[in-house]
């Protein structure tokens, strides 16, 4: 899975949760939850969905590593590669 495919998949899930937010308008290095205005329930939904799509485990202890869109994409790329 390429980096582009990973980012597309993440964007798609975020769009499902926050349809009114345009990916072009967000700062990919900033706090993901602020940028997309998502609460803890939305975030849990996102993690649940991504875990299923990529067939990876995302333990709660790793939440600190997926704080921004870029960090989340990096994390997923690392998980998928291993």
């Amino acid at each position: 899975m390429t980096r582009q495919e990973i980012e597309t998949a993440i964007s798609k899930e975020l769009n499902r949760i926050a349809p009114e937010i345009d990916m072009d308008d967000i700062d990919r290095g900033e706090d993901l939850r602020e940028e997309f205005d998502i609460d803890s329930m939305d975030f849990l939904k996102l993690v649940t969905a991504l875990g299923k799509i990529f067939r990876v485990e995302i333990p709660e202890a790793d939440y600190g590593q997926i704080g921004s869109f870029n960090a989340l994409a990096d994390y997923m790329a690392g998980k998928v590669a291993t």
Binding site: L44, V47, G51, E57, E60, A61
Partner: peptide
């Protein structure tokens, strides 16, 4: 800690 996301509590 050892729960899948769908079983996690908030």
């Amino acid at each position: 800690a050892d729960r899948a996301p769908e079983d996690r509590l908030l």
